[in-house]
Write a protein that binds this DNA or RNA. Sequence first.
DNA 1: TGTTATCCATATCGGATATATATGGGTTAT
DNA 2: ATAACCCATATATATCCGATATGGATAACA
Lengths: 310, 310
Amino acid sequence: MDIRHLRYFVTVAEHGSITRAAEALGMEQPPLSQQIRQLEKNLGVVLFERLTRGVKLTDIGAMLLPRAKTILDLQTQFLSTAQGLARGEMGHIRLGLAGAVSLLPVIPFTIRRFREMAPDVTIFLEESNTPSLCTALHEPSVDIAIVRPPVPDPVRLSVFHLLDEPTVIALPRGHQLADTPVISLDMVAQDPLIIFPRELGPGFHDAILSAYQVAGVTPVMGQQAPQIAGTIPLVAAGLGVSVVPRSLSQIHAGGVTFHTISEPAPRATLAVAIRAGQNMPLVTRFAAVLRTACRKWTNRQPEQDFFDLE
Amino acid sequence: MDIRHLRYFVTVAEHGSITRAAEALGMEQPPLSQQIRQLEKNLGVVLFERLTRGVKLTDIGAMLLPRAKTILDLQTQFLSTAQGLARGEMGHIRLGLAGAVSLLPVIPFTIRRFREMAPDVTIFLEESNTPSLCTALHEPSVDIAIVRPPVPDPVRLSVFHLLDEPTVIALPRGHQLADTPVISLDMVAQDPLIIFPRELGPGFHDAILSAYQVAGVTPVMGQQAPQIAGTIPLVAAGLGVSVVPRSLSQIHAGGVTFHTISEPAPRATLAVAIRAGQNMPLVTRFAAVLRTACRKWTNRQPEQDFFDLE
DNA sequence: TGTTATCCATATCGGATATATATGGGTTAT
DNA sequence: ATAACCCATATATATCCGATATGGATAACA
């Protein structure tokens, strides 16, 4: 028995006639008669009572009919699910976010847009740091990750640039430069620099330190923060200053002020990483949406209005 | 796509190898490769990633696998259900019982026995009268009915005799014959006869009246009872006497006494009726069980001990 | 590093089976 | 009584599944 027989069974039952069911199925009557008869033989039950005018379900046939319909429905669902998966319209995505990425409005905005475009897609979020996310991609415990380049082992991953976010200097309340809107790195070289461990984001970490270097100063290394966004509370506590992506200026903690950095200024680069050879349409589609969204915002508002969406 | 493809898909996924799946399926490797490839083409998705050592499910394949298993399980259930129905082991029976039939112990006993023999069978009970049950058989709202013959329109029904139950005379408390164990109909001919409407059971109704006729007397017709068992309360109320199946002597209502009837005595005949041409194994099987059970008890205890079961 | 083994893919052939055409039998409707 | 309708049977054709033979690529092994 296969699904075709079930389709014949249901169609004949619904039409009450083999002849009319046959034309509904786009076939002739004799083969349909044969197939029904063969199905009955295989099942060992009589499904239809043959009348002179059409056929009628037997009691057994009536009991089996709903089950056959269920199987047919499931098969239809199976096919549509497969096509939905093929078009990237359903399924689930495990999205990894590097430190403080979720504070950059374009990211949650894109996630929301994608959810509207593909309502049947479930998105699981996971916040971590860049190296962990890369291993998570390999495990694989995430399917796509927004990371701060560079990524280790780029051969097995496909990495696409997303955007370069300006950075700002975070000063504690009462700092002597708190009222100066634009300051340079050498002006805060004597203040202890609160920074996250290099392991959590080597690229961004190095970008900050090399910017100091280009400015011709060496920062006084302050306390380490547990993560990128974790530097803000430490600055608020007066332990030093910090250089953070501008999106972190959303955090209004304890009178911390954020100041544009005059050149040379580090930039926080974001990239999207997926497994190389990833053939899951959902993932590639999400990555594409992410890239176009980021490109759009980068072009539209190069520096100011970075957070105004829509 | 048909079920065979799903079976191949699941088997290959479980073995992680087309070659080993092929031998598990009792076929060769090349056709299995082709079928998997064809399934992928039809679905429009790639289910497996071909490695140099076996194959591995793609993400899409992993999402579709449980659905495929579900369909396979349902198909298995479908087949086993059909075979169960063919053997009369599952499904449901709608059993109609004529008036006061349920008081005859052999009936509930048989139902209980049948439930033990076929635990998966659900039995729906419906109490009504013989003519209604016959129309219910045609609707069909019941599948099998225990009726009091004769049945109208016997051509479209198959009716099998079950048993002839003796009848007894029910006398109210304080009746002058209350202490006489055996009485004849002519002894109560002057007492108003409480009887049910003829429409509710023409056969039994006629049997009672013809017994009076054979005895050479004409009963004084008393009040009509709403149903066969409903005569007892009226007798208890002193409105007259009644002739009822002996099984009704189980009803101990208001000092009513039951007395064996000396010949000529009417007998309450029971029969089982099913739709003619009924090919539902459950129903025919239940009817067969019913007939053998009734025959057994009739032979074993022709008159006395009629209610002692087992 | 060369050799073997393993596994998947392709090509071709044989056989089974589904479908179409033609036809018969039986009942209902006109 | 004739025509129409519907299911069943018979035969032929076409499709498709599966088996055998073979090639290609990579991994295991000597």
